Amino acid sequence: MTLTLTVPPGAKVRVRITNENGETTEIEVEPGETVTITLPAGSTVRVEVEVVDPDGRKRTETFTLKP
């Protein structure tokens, strides 16, 4: 399973991925970048995406991906 994120110009994104064992991976994606994350097959993962807009506003979306 893959997750692809494209960050709009001016925004910053931090992604936290937590697996079933509670292990967390965190990455930051710079403005204008596209990143593809390969998620472990057969695992349920929690993905938290934090977006910081150019004006400093933050918003966070959290979702769970199941196999």
Rank of each mutant, 00 (worst) to 15 (best):
M1E: 03
M1W: 14
M1A: 06
M1S: 04
M1K: 02
M1L: 08
T2R: 06
T2M: 07
T2Y: 11
T2C: 15
L3A: 09
L3G: 03
L3T: 04
L3S: 03
L3K: 02
L3E: 02
L3I: 05
L3Q: 02
L3R: 02
T4W: 10
T4I: 12
T4G: 07
T4R: 07
T4D: 07
T4K: 07
L5E: 02
L5T: 10
L5W: 12
L5C: 14
L5Y: 07
L5H: 04
L5K: 01
L5N: 04
T6E: 10
T6M: 11
T6Y: 10
T6P: 14
T6W: 15
T6C: 15
V7R: 06
V7G: 01
V7T: 05
V7Y: 15
V7C: 09
V7P: 01
V7S: 01
V7K: 04
P8C: 14
P8E: 14
P8Q: 11
P8K: 11
P8T: 14
P8F: 10
P9F: 06
P9M: 06
P9V: 08
P9H: 09
P9L: 05
P9A: 08
P9K: 08
P9W: 08
P9Y: 06
G10E: 12
G10S: 07
G10R: 07
G10K: 11
G10N: 10
G10T: 02
G10D: 06
G10V: 06
G10M: 10
G10Q: 10
A11H: 03
A11G: 08
A11I: 00
A11Y: 03
A11C: 03
A11L: 00
K12V: 09
K12R: 04
K12H: 11
K12W: 05
K12F: 08
K12G: 08
V13G: 05
V13M: 04
V13T: 12
V13E: 02
V13I: 03
V13F: 02
V13K: 02
V13Y: 01
R14H: 10
R14L: 12
R14F: 12
R14I: 08
R14W: 08
V15H: 01
V15L: 07
V15M: 09
V15A: 04
V15I: 06
V15S: 03
V15C: 09
R16M: 05
R16G: 10
R16W: 13
R16H: 05
R16L: 04
R16V: 04
R16E: 05
I17V: 10
I17R: 08
I17K: 08
I17T: 12
I17G: 13
I17H: 12
I17W: 13
T18D: 07
T18Y: 12
T18H: 13
T18S: 08
T18C: 09
T18E: 10
N19G: 11
N19I: 14
N19F: 10
N19W: 13
N19C: 13
E20F: 06
E20P: 04
E20K: 05
E20C: 11
N21S: 06
N21T: 06
N21Y: 09
N21D: 11
N21H: 09
N21A: 09
G22E: 10
G22S: 08
G22D: 13
G22H: 11
G22M: 10
G22P: 06
G22K: 08
E23S: 06
E23N: 09
T24N: 06
T24G: 11
T24H: 08
T25S: 06
T25H: 06
T25P: 08
T25R: 09
T25C: 13
T25L: 09
T25D: 05
E26Y: 03
E26K: 04
I27N: 13
I27P: 15
I27V: 10
I27L: 08
I27K: 09
I27T: 09
E28I: 03
E28R: 05
E28T: 04
E28P: 12
E28S: 09
E28Y: 04
V29E: 15
V29F: 13
V29N: 15
V29Y: 09
E30D: 04
E30T: 13
E30S: 05
E30G: 03
P31Q: 08
P31N: 11
P31Y: 09
P31S: 05
P31K: 12
P31I: 15
P31R: 12
P31M: 10
G32E: 13
G32A: 14
G32C: 13
G32Q: 14
G32W: 14
G32P: 12
G32N: 13
G32I: 15
E33Y: 11
E33T: 12
E33G: 13
E33P: 12
E33V: 08
E33I: 10
T34C: 13
T34K: 13
T34D: 09
T34M: 11
T34Y: 14
T34W: 15
T34F: 13
V35T: 08
V35C: 05
V35G: 05
V35I: 08
V35W: 13
V35N: 06
V35S: 08
V35P: 09
V35A: 05
V35L: 07
T36K: 07
T36S: 07
T36L: 13
T36G: 08
T36Y: 11
T36F: 10
T36Q: 06
I37Q: 09
I37V: 10
I37G: 05
I37C: 12
I37N: 14
I37S: 11
I37W: 13
T38A: 08
T38L: 11
T38K: 05
T38V: 09
T38G: 09
T38H: 08
T38I: 06
T38C: 15
T38Y: 07
L39P: 11
L39K: 04
L39S: 12
L39D: 08
L39V: 04
L39E: 09
L39N: 11
L39T: 07
P40I: 14
P40Y: 14
P40M: 11
P40V: 14
P40H: 12
A41G: 10
A41T: 09
A41K: 09
A41L: 12
A41Q: 07
G42D: 12
G42M: 11
G42F: 11
G42L: 08
G42Q: 14
G42T: 13
S43E: 15
S43N: 13
S43F: 10
S43D: 14
S43L: 14
T44I: 11
T44V: 09
T44A: 09
T44R: 02
T44D: 04
T44F: 13
T44H: 06
V45M: 03
V45L: 13
V45C: 07
V45K: 03
V45Y: 14
V45S: 03
R46A: 02
R46Q: 06
R46C: 05
R46I: 12
R46F: 10
V47C: 02
V47W: 01
V47G: 08
V47M: 01
V47K: 00
V47Y: 01
V47I: 05
V47H: 00
E48M: 03
E48P: 00
E48Y: 01
E48W: 03
V49H: 00
V49C: 07
V49G: 00
V49F: 03
V49P: 00
V49A: 01
V49N: 00
V49T: 01
V49S: 00
V49L: 05
E50T: 10
E50R: 02
E50I: 04
E50P: 00
E50D: 04
E50V: 03
E50M: 02
V51A: 01
V51M: 04
V51T: 12
V51K: 01
V51L: 02
V51H: 06
V51F: 11
V51W: 15
V51P: 00
V52A: 02
V52Q: 05
V52E: 14
V52W: 08
V52T: 15
D53K: 00
D53G: 11
D53R: 01
D53L: 14
D53T: 10
P54E: 10
P54Q: 10
P54N: 04
P54D: 04
P54H: 07
P54T: 04
P54K: 09
P54L: 06
P54V: 06
D55S: 03
D55Y: 03
D55H: 02
D55E: 02
D55K: 00
D55W: 05
D55N: 02
D55G: 01
G56I: 00
G56Q: 00
G56K: 00
G56D: 00
G56V: 00
G56F: 00
R57M: 04
R57V: 10
R57H: 04
R57E: 03
R57F: 04
R57K: 07
K58V: 11
K58G: 01
K58Q: 02
K58S: 05
K58H: 03
R59L: 03
R59Y: 15
R59E: 01
R59W: 15
R59M: 03
T60M: 03
T60H: 01
T60P: 00
E61F: 15
E61V: 15
E61M: 14
E61Y: 15
E61P: 01
E61R: 04
E61N: 03
E61W: 15
T62A: 03
T62G: 02
T62C: 15
T62R: 01
F63S: 01
F63R: 00
F63P: 00
F63D: 00
F63T: 02
F63G: 01
F63M: 04
T64E: 15
T64L: 12
T64I: 15
T64A: 01
T64P: 03
L65D: 00
L65F: 15
L65E: 01
L65I: 14
L65A: 01
L65G: 00
L65N: 00
K66G: 15
K66S: 15
K66R: 03
K66E: 13
K66A: 14
K66F: 15
K66N: 13
P67H: 11
P67V: 15
P67A: 13
P67Q: 09
P67L: 15
P67S: 07
